[in-house]
């Protein structure tokens, strides 16, 4: 790794000032899993490295019935995957975190690093977009909150200004009678995804119809894709196999995959359709809806 100036600020405010002072040559480091690999390959060559791990309070997980879940940017994936509250109430988020890299990666890689790296194959962004999370960004001069949609603006690109830092991830508390699922198709256990699907549905208890749905596709475009058409189609519908099939076709139609070693354009689009179907079925079951057998089965 080439040399850099190494600084450990004690506050986010100071970290932001440093990013501003060294604009264009400073990089923020959290867990370092993605950044160190990029630096070793000389794809990123920061003159100044700002390590935020000395700032206290950035690795907290808190849950309130009313305000929902708050994740600090330095929370590691293992904690998201194993936290009892997250597993119970934000199941799809725990499922996403549990499938990032390998165990030894999940012990140092952080939620903030995962989001800010903005890899189109990233797992947390589709999950958090599906859960309608807000990202709190702060700089020395102000703060704002953005949706995950706004945050992920292109391949490996976020909406962060040069001196802005992702300070907190806010996930609204899920409604009762809602359910979510995160499914990932990959070639091997630790590979990046061919396609990921995050889905959540709200079941109207009285009518047993779909109250609302949110479907997000990952790895089939420059950023996670919110399949709005499919979600609109599901609203107010009976959650029958035919309806789910139609929703899956609509969602897959919004995929913008590229051909690469993980599959052709047609294959990825087809897998997006199949995985949307499976994710919707699983989410519906978790929302208390009827069970049609194993949602993960190959015949789905």
């Amino acid at each position: 790794m080439q040399e850099f100036r190494y600084i450990e600020p004690k506050s986010l405010r100071r970290a932001s000032q440093l990013l501003k002072e060294h604009k264009g040559e400073a990089k923020l480091i959290a867990g370092g899993v993605s950044l160190v690999a990029l630096m070793k390959n000389r794809l990123v060559r920061p003159g100044v490295l700002v390590n935020i791990k000395a700032i206290s309070g950035l690795d907290k997980i808190t849950f309130h019935q009313r305000n929902g879940l708050k994740l600090g940017p330095l929370v590691i994936h293992r904690r998201i995957a194993t936290d009892p509250q997250i597993r119970e109430r934000f199941t799809l988020l725990a499922e996403a975190a549990s499938q990032i890299g390998s165990p030894a990666i999940r012990n140092i890689a952080t939620a903030g690093g995962n989001l800010c790296h903005a890899d189109p194959n990233g797992d947390l962004a589709p999950a958090l977009l599906c859960l309608n999370a807000r990202l709190k960004l702060m700089s020395a001069t102000g703060k704002r909150a953005v949706s995950v949609d706004e945050f992920c603006s292109d391949y490996y690109t976020t909406c962060l200004e040069p001196d802005e830092i992702l300070a907190e991830i806010l996930v609204p508390a899920p409604l009762p009678e809602s359910g979510g699922a995160y499914l990932k198709l990959k070639r091997s256990a630790t590979d990046m995804a061919v396609v990921q699907v995050a889905a959540c549905v709200i079941r109207d208890k009285k009518s047993n119809l779909c109250g609302a749905a949110r479907i997000v596709l990952g790895s089939v475009g420059p950023y996670p894709i919110l399949a709005k058409q499919a979600a609109d189609y599901l609203e107010g519908k009976d959650f029958s196999p035919e309806v789910v099939e139609q929703a899956a076709v609509l969602a897959a139609g919004q995929a913008q995959p590229n051909a690469d070693g993980r599959g052709s354009v047609d294959y990825k689009r087809e897998m997006a359709r199949v995985y949307v179907k499976r994710a919707l079925k699983l989410a519906w079951q978790r929302a208390g809806g009827s069970d049609w057998g194993d949602a993960r089965s190959v015949s789905a």
Binding site: G32, V33, V36, A37, R78, A104, I105, N107, I108
Partner: peptide
């Protein structure tokens, strides 16, 4: 680059990839 696992060590008892961790950490 964290793919192969031969550099695995324990940090406070948890396995990590030592090739991707800065020593200062």
């Amino acid at each position: 680059i964290g793919e192969c696992g031969v550099c695995t060590v324990l940090l406070d008892g948890w396995p990590i990839r030592s090739c991707l961790a800065l020593a200062v950490d």
